[in-house]
C-alpha cells in the first residue's frame, strides 16, 4: 500500500487528538489535518511557508502543554536556521514532526533536496538537538508516543512517499482559526 503523508497523518491524528497543540503546515498538510480530524487544538497555517517550526517554538515557550509542529522537508529547507534555534532554545515540551516525502507536495511534487543528498536528521543533530529520531512513516506513531511521554525537545523525521489526495481549501477564515486556537491553548 502506498504510504503518503495523508496515510501517515491519519495514523498519528489519534495520538495527537485532545492532548497536544498542533501547528499544521501550510497547504496540503493543513487541509489533510482538517479533513482527518478538525479540532480546536489545530492551528492551520494558510501562508508563511517555512514558519510552522517557528510558530510552534514560540508557542511552546509560553505554555506547559505539549506542542507539535507538523512541518515538511520543503518547508524546513526554506527556514533551516530554525533548526539551530531549536537546537539552542526549544523548551522540553516542543516536538518538531518533520514529514519528509522528498517533494514539494502542495506545488505538484517537485523533488526537494532530501530526495537527493540532504539528510535532515543529520542537520538537526548538528545544530545541537539532543533527541532526533528518524523513522519510516509506519513507525511514526510509536516515535511520537515516545516523544510525548519524555522530556524534549524532540525532532522526528518521518519518511514517507510523495503524493496527496485531492482536498479542498479549509473553509475557516484566519480570524476564526486564530481565536479558536488561542482559546484552546488556555483551556
Amino acid at each position: 500500500m502506498t504510504y503518503r503523508r495523508y496515510e501517515l497523518l491519519q495514523d498519528v491524528a489519534p495520538v495527537l487528538d485532545g492532548k497536544v497543540l498542533v501547528i499544521c503546515n501550510i497547504g496540503f498538510p493543513s487541509q489533510e489535518m482538517y479533513a482527518i480530524n478538525d479540532t480546536p487544538n489545530n492551528f492551520y497555517m494558510l501562508g508563511s511557508m517555512g514558519l510552522s517550526s517557528s510558530i510552534g517554538l514560540g508557542l511552546a515557550a509560553t505554555t506547559d502543554k505539549k506542542v507539535v509542529s507538523i512541518d515538511g522537508d520543503g518547508s524546513v529547507l526554506m527556514n533551516l536556521g530554525t533548526l539551530s534555534t531549536i537546537g539552542n532554545y526549544a523548551p522540553a515540551n516542543y516536538i518538531l514532526f518533520l514529514v519528509d516525502n522528498g517533494a514539494y507536495g502542495s506545488t505538484g511534487d517537485q523533488p526537494t533536496h532530501t530526495s537527493g543528498s540532504t539528510d535532515l536528521a543529520a542537520i538537526a543533530r548538528a545544530t545541537g538537538v539532543k533527541s532526533v529520531i528518524e523513522v519510516n512513516g509506519t513507525e511514526a506513531v510509536g516515535a511520537l508516543e515516545t516523544c510525548l511521554t519524555t522530556e524534549g525537545p524532540h525532532v522526528i523525521v518521518a519518511k514517507c512517499e510523495p503524493g496527496s489526495p485531492k482536498l479542498t481549501p479549509i473553509p475557516m477564515d484566519p480570524g476564526a482559526i486564530r481565536d479558536r486556537f488561542k482559546a484552546a491553548v488556555q483551556a
Binding site: I23, F43, S48, G50, L51, S52, S53, S54, I55, G56, L57, G58, L59, A60, A61, T62, T63, N79, T82, T85, R178, F181, K182, V185, Q186
Partner: peptide, 10 residues
C-alpha cells in the same frame, strides 16, 4: 513566526 506563536500562547 516565533512571535506569532507566543501571541497564540497569550
Amino acid at each position: 513566526g516565533v512571535c506569532a506563536g507566543a501571541y497564540l500562547g497569550g
